[in-house]
């Protein structure tokens, strides 16, 4: 795709869509939201805005996903759409429980191709738990911090997730996840002028659904790593338990410190994912230098030999992995 077009579809359009939802869905709901005040966005508008921003970005970048979904890695736009409706639920605990039900459904759908039933049940539990942990973590951040600090923290989280997805050999989903970060960025920017626009408490289910789907999708069906998934899923919840984050009188500290703190586990996860990615690249280069090896063996993930001496060409196993047919006769 033309870089200008990719920037427009992956960043500008999602940002404008998120902005439009929050700005437009304002006055009709303002009086009921907070008696007398007329300058409030609908509390659930950000969830719909971010879900729409992500979905439209995916549609423009990758094509509109099938309905019913066929590809488990492309279910996020639909999951986000459903999750946006959970933002209509006022009670946080009920919203968390509903997110768990959505996570269960996502788990059942996403693990469909996995035949081992015991493994599948465990993975469904994992997806459900991730959804609950992430939704609760994001909601707690938004409830306890300066809204702009929470929004900036979410931008850091989503950007880290996009990087992790990229390092799992899935650039298309990384690009789409970047669209979510752009939508959040737009709301954060608007929040600098109009702080209530950055209140994302009820957007937590939509953001969580997108991240859970993309992170689990790339962990199960690409080269993502469970440790990266766990770090990104738990980071908001962990940071939300640090008490004095919202206490500073200086707005810059209230905004920047939570984002910096959440950035620590996310940076660690990103670095780990990057090291894995480049280690396999090195192993690949080594393979080309020294001859084919079996990439399914654990040694294939480590570059060359410690002494630097050329490795032997190894034993080819299947044509699919080494490129050579071991059964070739004549």
């Amino acid at each position: 795709m033309d870089p200008i077009l990719a920037l427009a579809f992956g960043v500008v359009v999602p940002a404008l869509v998120a902005l439009a939802f929050v700005v437009v869905l304002r006055r009709p709901f303002a009086r009921t939201a907070r008696g007398g005040e007329t300058d409030l966005p609908a509390p659930w508008a950000a969830g719909f805005g971010l879900a729409a921003a992500y979905g439209i970005g995916v549609g423009l970048l990758l094509g509109w996903p099938d309905l019913p979904p066929v590809d488990v890695t492309l279910v996020a736009p639909w999951a986000a759409g459903v999750a946006a409706f959970l933002g209509l639920i006022r009670d946080g605990r009920v919203r968390g429980a509903a997110s768990g039900v959505l996570g269960l459904g996502l788990g059942v759908f996403m693990t469909g191709p996995i035949e081992d039933m015991t493994l599948r049940v465990g993975l469904i539990a994992g997806v459900t738990a991730s959804m609950v942990a992430l939704e609760r973590g994001l909601a707690r951040l938004s409830e306890r911090l300066d809204p702009r600090g929470a929004a900036l923290s979410q931008i850091v989280l989503v950007s880290g997730a996009a990087l992790a997805v990229l390092f799992s050999d899935t650039a298309s989903l990384a690009q789409a996840t970047g669209g979510l970060a752009a939508g959040l960025g737009a709301l954060f920017t608007l929040g600098l002028l109009w702080p209530r626009a950055a209140v994302l408490t009820r957007a937590a289910p939509a953001v969580a659904a997108i991240l859970v789907t993309n992170l689990w999708g790339t962990t199960l069906f690409a080269n993502g790593h469970p440790a990266v998934l766990a770090a990104l899923t738990l980071a908001p919840l962990l940071v939300s338990f640090i008490p004095p984050l919202a206490a500073s009188r200086r707005a810059i500290l209230r905004i920047a410190v939570p984002a910096a703190l959440i950035g620590i586990p996310i940076a660690a996860a990103g670095a780990f994912a990057g090291l894995r990615y480049f280690a396999t690249e090195d192993a690949s280069a080594s393979e080309h230098a020294t001859g084919p090896t079996d990439p399914t063996s654990p040694s294939a993930a480590t570059p060359a030999t410690p002494s630097g001496t050329p490795t032997t060409s190894g034993t080819p196993t299947t044509p699919g992995t080494s490129g050579y047919d071991p059964g070739y006769g004549y």
Partner: peptide, 27 residues
């Protein structure tokens, strides 16, 4: 056709071809 047998003489590229960006070979 076994999608995992895709071969372009570059392991990194073959891994990418197996990913959800292209053939999504695990699913």
């Amino acid at each position: 056709i076994d999608v995992n047998s895709v071969f372009t003489a570059d392991k990194k590229r073959d891994d990418h071809l197996k990913s959800p960006d292209f053939f999504s070979a695990k699913q």
